[in-house]
Design a protein around this nucleic acid. Structure first.
Lengths: 218, 218
DNA sequence: GGATAATTTGACCGACTGGTAAACATTACA
DNA sequence: TGTAATGTTTACCAGTCGGTCAAATTATCC
């Protein structure tokens, strides 16, 4: 009898490990483009090169595949914000955060789009994660930024909206990639656009928010 | 015989006008949440309070409904950018553009999400519009910004990425509304968040990019 | 090599999908 | 008021959906 699905002895066989990886890879391809409702198990099966019942042997439902993907992505997606260091230099911390987020948009666009699709459609599967772990992490880092501002190390601004704007500007290059390419045209659509973006965002956020280049009140 | 669907005499009856409006309103509700593939005609019919065949009497296919919506939204969505005036004062033009975009995110979030869903999923229905009219408009306005920078009225920066960052930061409040609310928590989730966002974005873009508050090279 | 467990598949199910046909109801207008 | 055009609905269709099942195949371990 076959019951497994990562049950019984907790230990997963080599095949289980490989196949689950293979399935999640395919699921990421499909979910990141069509969202949960718009994706079908058949599509994922075809991309994964396996039969549909075989997918359902490893993940009981379509929702279980999505869930597994989301959990994995959510964790790595917050890594850059977690690395945000209160003891560091404000300017280089912000610069580093932007750089890392932009690199993730470049190197893991599917993960970004999966997340964007989910939030865009009302986050029906991850509302708890947003209100819990995410909010706590942002609250913590916002406090750091506020402290820097109070100490005069950085211009005074709303830390939450600062974080939102860093999220949106960087993820834009993954989520709205088609639009960015269309507007930039054939010329600048190579990977050079990420370097241009990095330069611009650094100028906008770092130069714009650092205190040293500013007068107290114009 | 019934053939109409806005054919024959071009002139649309009162009923046609009303019903088509009613359908598009419902379609916007549904498409903006689930995207094209994830939405069903039955859902739209239920929201519209009409029978499915009745919808299909006014719009032959699901695609036709989507098309009609996209066309309408695309036009109004670009209005703020079109209003961007080369003769105006750079600072107030940018400020005004941000304000208008933010107001649209607040007042027409469904339209923003419809568009975001479409682009996110690879823009299969609007690629031509992006590469044509949109690109031309952006090219034109980018040239304006570049001129301002050359004349020293504004800090030198990549005009395309400036426009991208205004798009992304403002639309973020419509597209990622659930996330924004979750992070801000019960307290700041009222409409006040748009005022806070406006204040922050103005600070970031206007103060950050204006020349007068900056030293030439720190 | 054989028993046992793990894996894979084809056939299938009921619910739902986009869309059609044709009968029925309503409106506009002479 | 009659009638032709317009608008609406019920019943239906073929294809797809998520998911099940039992049989077949393969890996594992003694």
């Amino acid at each position: 009898m076959a019951i497994p699905r990562a049950a019984k002895t907790q230990r997963r066989t080599r095949i289980q490990e490989e196949k689950e990886e293979q399935i999640l890879e395919a699921a990421l391809d499909v979910f990141s483009v069509s969202g949960f409702r718009g994706s079908t198990i058949d599509q994922i099966a075809e991309v994964a090169g396996m039969s549909k019942p075989n997918l359902l042997y490893y993940f009981r439902t379509k929702e279980a595949m999505h869930r597994a993907l989301i959990d994995r992505v959510l964790f790595t997606w917050l890594e850059p914000l977690r690395a945000f260091n209160a003891q560091g230099n404000p300017e280089s911390e912000i610069r580093g955060y932007i750089r890392r987020k932009l690199e993730m948009a470049r190197d893991f666009p599917r993960e970004s789009r999966l997340f964007a699709n989910e939030v865009l459609q009302g986050a029906p599967h991850i509302e708890d994660e947003l209100k819990g772990p995410l909010k706590e992490l942002v609250d913590e880092k916002a406090e750091v930024i506020r402290t820097w501002a109070k100490a005069g190390k950085i211009v005074k601004c709303d830390p939450y909206h600062l974080i939102f704007s860093i999220w949106s500007t960087t993820q834009h290059y993954a989520d709205f990639d088609v639009q960015v390419r269309a507007v930039l045209g054939q010329g600048q659509s190579g990977e050079g656009r990420f370097e241009d973006a990095a330069r611009f965002l650094e100028q906008l956020f770092v130069d714009g928010l650092s205190v040293r280049a500013k007068q107290p009140a114009s």
